[in-house]
């Protein structure tokens, strides 16, 4: 079942730079997709369009077949967006307060806010950190909190922008385990990264972008030879099953 569909999506910045150039992409329910490409290839701009944070210069984004532009902001919960820099995402002064932010925006009753917050804390194993200040958490915990904040909106699709950047081995494993657990729970995952060797073994699909276009879209095993041409590092002689940081 199609959840997200972009049709000829284009985005041009005010200075004339063409960030997206006719992107056609379909995300199906339950997929684990990796979106990769060089810096400036348009990944993050595409991600923002999927959440309706930018207005397309051309084309459109459909969520369950409905044009995203015609949906009011509070109904745009199908896609949950986790930004690259977790520190800039925290609006609450404690973990608990931060998690309440999304559900409060949806004008949910207090009982439902509490239920969602507790669920997000449980899924991301942050229950014992509920009263901590977000900025005092470790790198991995901050990423998990950023994911939890989005999970409290109960999205179907989780879009994660460079979730491993700046994390050490343990932090990366921690975040990766969390992402896999969310996929097991039925969430559709769209993961933007250029560190594909950390996660590719778990993905069912690899989409590569270059100059604002989708230039390759297939099962990861079919793109192992092609990917390096687009600036994506694939370890030499590595098997697809080795491309994970979880033993």
């Amino acid at each position: 079942m199609k959840i997200i569909e972009t049709q000829g999506l284009g985005h041009r910045f005010p200075d004339g730079t063409l960030a997206l150039n006719g992107v056609n992409l379909v995300v199906e329910k339950g997929e684990f997709t990796i979106l990769a490409g060089r810096n400036g290839s348009g990944k993050t701009v595409l991600m923002k369009h999927l959440k309706g944070l930018l207005t397309p210069s051309s084309g459109r984004v459909l969520i369950h077949g409905a044009d995203l532009r015609h949906l009011p902001p509070e109904y745009r919960t199908t896609v949950g967006l986790v930004f690259q820099n977790p520190d800039s995402q925290f609006v609450g002064q404690t973990v608990m307060e931060d998690l309440r932010f999304g559900p409060e925006n949806l004008r949910l009753p207090e009982e439902e806010i509490q239920r969602r917050v507790q669920r997000a804390l449980d899924i991301t194993s942050l229950r014992d950190k509920a009263d901590r200040r977000p900025h005092t958490l470790s790198g991995g915990e901050k990423r998990r909190l950023a994911v939890a904040g989005v999970l409290a909106l109960d999205p179907e699709v989780l879009v994660l922008d460079e979730p491993f950047s700046g994390l050490d081995l343990e932090g990366t494993k921690d975040v990766l385990r969390g992402i896999l657990a969310l996929h097991d729970l039925g969430h559709t995952i769209l993961l933007i990264t250029h560190e594909v060797e950390k996660v590719l073994a778990h993905a069912g699909r690899l989409v590569i972008m270059e100059h604002g276009r989708v230039v390759a879209d297939d099962h990861p095993s079919a793109l192992l030879q092609t990917a390096p041409r687009f600036g994506i590092h694939i370890p030499k002689k590595a098997d697809l099953s080795d491309m994970t940081w979880i033993e």
Partner: peptide
């Protein structure tokens, strides 16, 4: 930083009419 925060707030469906903490 404030721009990133504003974007993140919008990403979490920020609305002027929100549920208020009891």
């Amino acid at each position: 930083r404030t721009e990133e925060m504003a974007e993140a707030m919008e990403g979490r469906c920020y609305s002027d009419e929100r549920s208020s903490l009891p």
